[in-house]
Amino acid sequence: MSVPNSDDDVTTAVNERVTNRGFGRILVALYAIMAIGATTRSLFAIATKFNQAPLAYSLSAFAALVYIIATVTLARGDATSRRIATVSISIELIGVLVVGALSLIDPGAFQKASVWSWFGLEYLLLPLALPILGLWWLRHTRPSEEAVEV
C-alpha cells in the first residue's frame, strides 16, 4: 500500500516567483555564510594588520558589503530589493572575475589573499559560484509582468 502524503512529505509545489523560497532559501543561506565569514575576517584583518595588504583587505571588506546587500535583498525579495540585488550581484560577478584573473596573472598584486583571489578558492569557489547562481535565480524568479513589459 502506498502512502501518497506521509506527514513529512513535501506537498506544496514551489512555483512562486519569489527570491526567498525554494532554491532561494539555500542561496540566501550561502550568501549569509559568506557575509558573516567575509565580514568578520576582513574586520579582523583591517583592525590588526591592515598595513600588510591594504588593497587585499579593502577588497575583502568591499566583498563583504556586497554579500550583506545580496543576503538582505534576496531574503526580502520585493521589487526594489530585486533591483538592488541585480546591480550588486552583477558588481560582485565582475569583481570576482577581475580580481580572480589578476591574482592568477600577477600573484604579488594583492600581497595577501582577498576573498576574491583565485576566484575565491579559499572559500571553496563559492565566491565564483554565488553571483552566477544569484543572477540566474533573479532571472528565473522574474515576475511575469516584467517579462511582458518591453
Binding site: 513535501v10 523560497r21 525554494g22 532561494g24 539555500i26 540566501v28 543561506a29 555564510i33
Partner: peptide, 21 residues
C-alpha cells in the same frame, strides 16, 4: 540561525539549508 531560516520552507530546500549549515 540556519534551522530557523529553514524552518517554514515547504520544499526540500529547507532541509538542504540545514545540510549546508
Amino acid at each position: 540561525l540556519g534551522i530557523a531560516w529553514a524552518w517554514d520552507e515547504k520544499s526540500r530546500s529547507g532541509v538542504a539549508v540545514v545540510a549546508v549549515v
